[in-house]
Simulated scan of single mutants.
Amino acid sequence: MAAFGSVFMPKMALATFEDNKWSDSQIVPSDSISLHPGAHVLHYSSTCFEGLKAFRHEDGSVHVFRMDQNIERFAQSSRLLALPEINKVQLEQMIKDIVAEFAADVPEGPGSMYIRPTHIGTEAQIGKAASASNSSMQYVLLSPVGDYFAGGAHALRLLLDEEGQRCASHMGMIKSGGNYASALRPTIEAKEKYQADQILFCPNGYITETGAANFLLVDGNEIITKALDSSFLHGVTRSSILTLAKDLGMTVSEREVSTEELLERAAKPGVEAMLSGTAAVLTSVGTFIYNGKDYKVGNGDIGPMATKLRNALNDIQWGRAPDTHNWLTKIA
């Protein structure tokens, strides 16, 4: 099995912004783009992207999950990065067109088709360190993916880092490559030094997120997570999980959580910690690493609530449960 996200469909949807207007979108070969070496994106990181999925149901139909939310976040990221404003209707059609083109290639569950809309500044102008790119390119790549847990799921080890932060605090809500680059080296070092799977960044002693996922804590009937602000990504999976938790009668608390509170709660039996994101949906955290010491979360294993919530979301995505929140868009 190829590594997650390493296989791509041979064509993608593409549109460009020049002379203050968007071109018509086209379906083009995935390896057909070229950039001037002075392109704004290559020097000043004017880039954002999204991650969403299409799912094949048992009747053979193909559905995209929460496309509207991803398009809204993509538009917000583009705006906050001073990229040309996207045409949301055009992007929705680009996603529909390219997924329809490769509908036959959408894997059956537990696989899916990963969809990666991307927006980059293309103006060839290296004097624009403090100015926006006047031209850009928007494309939608597809990557068929298998079961994220094909090698077997395990509870993660999470390093609590109170010194650093994932990215500049006013940039956190933007899904931009620079934010992931900012967290990369610390994460690699945490893996080497502590055998950690991820870092939970806790600047000033309060939790935000890991390098690539939102963080949630379950204590009894309460699910706790940081309230939305500009410092961390407003995850679509996070939002979906919180909605499903409310459907199950759970209390949702969105507020500040200190590392001190986190470690106190983690020591209680039955407490669960988890990470949410498009790729894995929900992954249990079994251990916190803090000041060089391991702290077990609950029983240190995969938690039943994480499994229950992940299955509830998967059942909607694959059409095994009613889509009561209208999260699915039928493509083919």
Rank of each mutant, 00 (worst) to 15 (best):
S143R: 00
T208M: 04
E18A: 08
T251V: 15
Q317A: 08
S230D: 15
L216H: 09
G292N: 12
T283Y: 00
I86P: 00
S169L: 14
G177N: 04
P107I: 00
I224M: 13
E189K: 14
I224V: 15
S253C: 14
A245V: 04
I316V: 15
L309E: 03
G178L: 12
C48Y: 00
V218W: 01
Y194I: 02
H57M: 06
A39Y: 01
L233P: 00
M94G: 02
M9F: 03
D294F: 06
G286N: 06
V41E: 03
S6V: 00
P107D: 01
Q90V: 01
N314F: 12
S133V: 01
K88D: 10
L14A: 07
A155F: 04
A39L: 03
E58N: 13
A196L: 01
I331Y: 01
Q317Y: 06
F17V: 05
S136H: 03
N314K: 11
F102N: 12
Q198F: 11
F215T: 04
V99F: 06
L14E: 05
L200K: 05
I95M: 10
H325M: 08
K191A: 11
A183N: 08
D247F: 08
R66K: 13
A132E: 10
Q165V: 05
S6C: 02
S253H: 15
L141I: 13
L242C: 09
L80A: 10
L217Y: 11
G277W: 00
M1F: 08
N179T: 05
E101R: 13
H170Q: 14
G164R: 15
E264F: 13
A181Y: 06
E92T: 12
L216R: 06
W327K: 02
G292V: 12
T329A: 10
R157Y: 01
N179F: 09
F8K: 00
G205A: 07
